[in-house]
Design a protein around this nucleic acid. Structure first.
Length: 199
DNA sequence: TAGGCCATCTGGTCCT
DNA sequence: AGGACCAGATGGCCTA
């Protein structure tokens, strides 16, 4: 998945058409009509969270609510649900273009954002190093200790084949910190300031 | 069983 | 007025 596609996906999510695409529009009834809420369309998405919200409004208030208000709230809930699904889709796209963590479950949302931040920073460093030392990569290609730029180059070449968290830190300049779920690639070789940029 | 993560609902606020 | 966005609350699932 290319960054272009990521942008397109986000843009799509930002359009009104997308937001309203699958929003149901229950008929508005006159204000004076009241109803006990049966929020059945809360469950229209097939998630494991479905059933529990079925009668939430009813049980919370125990009162009859104006049907028009219920309709507005229901539509707002649909939009909000759709908005969050959009957000999650964008996160999935983001996950797909980040280096995969080996033998690990899907990144959580916060992990995804942090890794993306670090990854972008590392790639930026790569470009900066390439600009400043154009010959360096060529001459030092086979050294055991690789500069951050080269590690990033490796990542760029094969985004899905990253060193394991338990990887020998002497073989590359990548350091994996903490347990596997928090094994963000902290590229720190020769760059003390680098950690300042890691969330 | 506690804590982390998540999806969903909800009401408030801002914007068009 | 209605939609988008946000943050708080709630409750289910999963794992250590």
């Amino acid at each position: 998945m290319s960054p272009k596609l990521l942008c397109a996906s986000i843009k799509r999510c930002l359009t009104k058409e997308a937001v309203n695409a699958d929003v149901s529009s229950p008929e508005d009834k006159p204000e004076e009509e009241f109803t006990m809420v049966n929020i059945s369309n809360y469950t229209k998405k097939s998630t494991h969270h479905g059933e529990k919200y079925k009668n939430r409004m009813k049980s919370k208030t125990g009162l009859k609510l104006p049907r028009k208000r219920v309709s507005r709230r229901t539509k707002a809930n649909d939009r909000e649900r759709h908005r969050m699904h959009c957000l999650n889709s964008a996160l999935d796209v983001l996950r797909s273009i980040l280096p995969a963590l080996p033998h690990d479950a899907q990144l959580t949302k916060i992990e995804t954002l942090r890794l993306a931040h670090n990854y972008i920073w590392a790639l930026t460093e790569t470009l900066r190093m390439a600009d400043h030392f154009p010959d360096y990569l060529h001459h030092h290609h086979h050294e055991a200790y690789l500069p951050v730029s080269q590690v990033c180059m490796e990542h760029m070449r094969s985004p899905t084949s990253v060193s394991s968290p338990e990887c020998d830190s002497t073989s590359t300049s990548s350091t994996w910190h903490g347990n596997s779920r928090f094994s963000f690639c902290i590229l720190s070789h020769n760059h003390g300031s680098m950690k300042d940029n890691v969330i």
